[in-house]
């Protein structure tokens, strides 16, 4: 789960770069850039969740 979170962040970044280089200026490009950032946000959420202490780990 931790690895998945940290892989989703660069994956979202690659979508952003692909949108920039492959799409003409306009709404579609903006939408894909935002979608890439949303995927990064999801990855960050997964990473955060994976770092939450499990009940038995709490000090």
């Amino acid at each position: 789960m931790r690895l998945a979170g940290f892989l989703l962040m660069p994956a979202g970044g690659i979508i952003v770069l692909a949108a920039l280089s492959m799409l003409p200026p306009g709404a579609a490009r903006e939408a894909f850039v935002l979608a890439g950032v949303a995927i990064q946000g999801f990855g960050l959420g997964v990473a955060i969740r994976s770092h939450l202490p499990r009940p038995e780990e709490k000090e």
Binding site: L7, P10, A11, G12, V16, R29, E30, V33, L34, L44
Partner: peptide, 23 residues
């Protein structure tokens, strides 16, 4: 479209800096 440039920069931070620093 300055906002889009800033969003791309933030994406670069989240996509590169955080995973690289953590790794």
């Amino acid at each position: 479209e300055q906002w889009l440039a800033q969003v791309v920069g933030i994406a670069a931070l989240l996509g590169f800096v955080l995973p690289a620093a953590y790794g």
